[in-house]
Write a protein that binds this DNA or RNA. Structure first.
Lengths: 335, 335
DNA sequence: GCGAGGGATGAATACGTATACACTTCACAC
DNA sequence: GTGTGAAGTGTATACGTATTCATCCCTCGC
């Protein structure tokens, strides 16, 4: 195990200066074609790869993007991460992944200053997180994906949660439902808030009231959806439909319905949000509002690259449509 | 947006040399307590963080680990990744994540030489992948997690797949099953091979034969399990139990059973492998052989750190037990 | 009073690359 | 024949840190 060869070693081998080797590496046009060919041959023979650290130190660019996520085990987040990996990779960028649940805030603060990455993708914006303010304040190019923050001067790419939720509500109302359950998240961010408000707006526009007892506020996990469904469905006169703000909660609700013996969709319709891969499994067969993960990530990475290119460009907030995907958990017309 | 302060700037501010600042940063004992205190105060006031690149270039250590994975959307892999993130973070290490499906092999080869990371965690060993040979040959400390490669001189931490599979087979046989289906992966690695062989061994030891028509070889996705179940269960005399080598396939099998109207466990028992979080959801309630994700990752990272410390230490291959977790997909004694 | 020695600090250098600058060579126009 | 410019190349330097080496001061023992 010997130290890998440097550009200087190779320069000696090729009979040129280190500067010329570097020029070849950076595709500098000011180099004689013959020289270039000779150097390239030597590089190839030696199986040489430039030291990324030294290069980054000199150029100030690491070709690496920092990604902050939470709960990778949540199906939607896993899909988001997978897509981020795909898009970054196809852009020739590496990804450093941080989990804001595991990493203490001081670590995060350090990272922001270390110039270890060219930019950040933040996917877990919450009101109470100082991460985003810190990231923007640090001056490092930053894009918010999937979850935005109102009034933050920062590029953002989000689904149109409000409209998607509205469509879901409208769909239930049009099908004749009037006794509707809403399992919502204790609001910590834009996303779940809009998924809540949009739904309520659709019902209000149609003149359908939501009984306060039909609204359950829960946490993120599957088990919380399960508990909420049990609570709603074990009442004497349970709601005929339940809408919730994430697929994960919807899966919990389906499980809870199963537990209390309620049939879906005969006894109760269920609608989720995200349209994760699991939603299409027969075990769930879940009607869900789709989040355009692919477009969100494509657009977001594009935005980030443009901002790295030109830090002074005006911020953009891009909203992408979230269409309702109908499956068996609501597939039948209501009698 | 101004350039972040350097140790030299801070040295000037504190009235000392850059060398002294560096000594404070590295906890070098050869510095006067008073000086140290003064420097620390200045560092704190300036909110200074050392440039990670420069430090890495000098020390040759990046405090970053490269992780290679596939299919993050697969529940088990997501759990593995989550755990890796947790353990690395608590060790003060960063993680660069590569997806070997997205990243072309040449990228991988470059990465191996760039000294961008102190070591590698490989989680997706397959026979045909050159990645592992390359990684080991590159001399960078490397540990294989979850999937091993026979005869590769490299630290490895794997579950005892053979024994886990054996126990699953034994459990079915003991319950009186004699007509048993096996949904297995087209073998591309150690893991699925042992999960297959161990199971067959248990049946053989008990004198139970597996009909060739009861063995289905499939690919990784959920849909493949679904198709396999349909194939097995729509026969005139379907098997009374199906064992498969991953939870993901088991979920597909449960869905397929549902599709053809077979009741679990009344008509058919189902056993998976990995014991992912989803297995405990009521929708599946799946009996599954547990992979000790937490221990695997803890042990693996520990091994990796020790190898980074001392590259000459002898290679270790550590095998951890995989206990069978019994749930509703098999919970009842067979009549 | 003087040398030895330890403790604390600064000056200088190296990590491996990219690039500004200087220099040489050659072709060409006057 | 001299001057001009372009094309290639080499020299030197900088990125920000860690670390070796040299220096200085102070204490202590004689």
């Amino acid at each position: 195990m010997t130290r890998p060869p440097t550009s200087r070693d190779l320069a000696r081998l090729a009979g040129v200066s280190q500067a010329t080797v570097s020029r070849v590496l950076t595709n500098n046009p000011k180099v004689n074609p013959e020289t270039r060919a000779r150097v390239l041959q030597v590089l190839k023979d030696a199986n040489y790869t430039p030291n990324a650290l030294a290069r980054a130190m000199k150029t100030g660019r690491t070709d690496t993007i920092g990604v902050f996520m939470t709960r990778v085990t949540s199906p939607f987040h896993a899909e988001l991460l997978d897509e981020i990996g795909r898009v970054l990779s196809s852009s020739g960028l590496h990804m450093i992944l941080w989990n804001i649940e595991h990493d203490p805030e001081e670590t995060v603060a350090e990272v922001l200053q270390q110039r270890l990455v060219d930019g950040f993708l933040l996917t877990s914006a919450t009101y109470d997180s100082r991460l985003h303010t810190m990231a923007v304040a640090s001056g490092t190019p930053t894009v918010l994906l999937h979850r935005g923050i109102d009034g933050l001067d920062c590029d953002q790419v989000v689904g149109d949660n409000w409209q998607g939720a509205y469509d879901a509500g409208r769909y239930l109302v049009d099908a004749g439902h009037t006794d509707i359950g809403l399992v919502t998240l204790t609001h910590t961010g834009n996303t779940s808030r809009d998924r809540d408000l949009g739904f309520r707006a659709a019902l209000a526009d149609a003149g359908v009231k939501i009984k306060p007892s039909n609204v359950v506020s829960v946490g993120v996990p599957h088990a919380d959806g399960h508990a909420a469904a049990k609570k709603l469905l074990s009442r004497k006169k349970p709601p005929t439909a339940i809408y919730t703000v994430t697929d994960l909660l919807a899966f919990g609700i389906l499980d809870g319905a199963r537990a209390v013996g309620a049939r879906v969709p005969d006894d109760v319709w269920v609608i989720g949000f995200d349209n994760t891969e699991l939603a299409a499994w027969e075990a769930f067969d879940l009607t869900s509002v789709e989040q355009p993960v692919h477009s969100i990530v494509e657009t977001g990475v594009d935005l980030l690259r443009r901002r790295i290119e030109d830090p002074e460009r005006p911020t953009e907030i891009i909203t992408l449509p979230c269409p309702l995907v109908i499956r068996g958990s609501t597939a039948h017309r209501r009698v």
